[in-house]
């Protein structure tokens, strides 16, 4: 599956989507940004992409607390998709609930995708470093 420089943001807060895009645009001028307002919409699009062998984003930035389908429900379904190449997924949440960290650990053990975890607010340098590292 061919990848191109595309970054996917899954967050229901338009301010966060705006901010992330703004912070990354300078560092990755060629990158394409896509965003989905909840896990369900994102999952529907990504499933369709996998089914039609369309390119998948290089990096997914995932919020946890969202309506309809939250970040964990999304991950639970996403890691079952037949994607052989390990993908980079970074959870960016305002939650400091230890249960969420625990969930992250659990999901890391379940998938070959590379899972990272960051708290909001995220600094521009940090965000760029994460996306670049991948």
């Amino acid at each position: 599956m061919m990848q191109f420089d595309s970054i996917c943001v899954i967050d229901d807060d338009p301010i966060v989507v705006f901010g992330i895009r703004k912070m990354l645009q300078g560092a990755f001028p060629d990158a394409t940004f896509t965003s989905y307002e909840n896990g369900k919409v994102a999952l529907d699009h990504l499933s369709a992409a996998v089914a039609s062998a369309s390119p998948l984003p290089r990096h997914i930035l995932l919020d946890i607390n969202m309506p309809i389908m939250d970040g964990w429900q999304f991950l639970d379904a996403f890691i079952r998709l037949p994607i052989t190449e390990p993908m980079d997924i970074t959870i960016i949440t305002s939650s400091i609930d230890p249960a969420d960290l625990q969930q992250w650990e659990t999901f890391r053990g379940l998938t070959h995708h590379r899972l990272e975890f960051r708290n909001k607010p995220i600094k521009k340098e940090d965000l760029i470093a994460i996306v670049r590292a991948a």
Binding site: D13, I15, V16, G19, K22, M23, N65, T93, S94, S95, I96, D97, K120, P121, I122, K123, K124
Partner: peptide, 18 residues
Amino acid sequence: VSHNLRSHSANFSMLLEL
């Protein structure tokens, strides 16, 4: 408190930085 208020303040902090 941990999530909702934090998410608002995180937005402030991010927007102010921008």
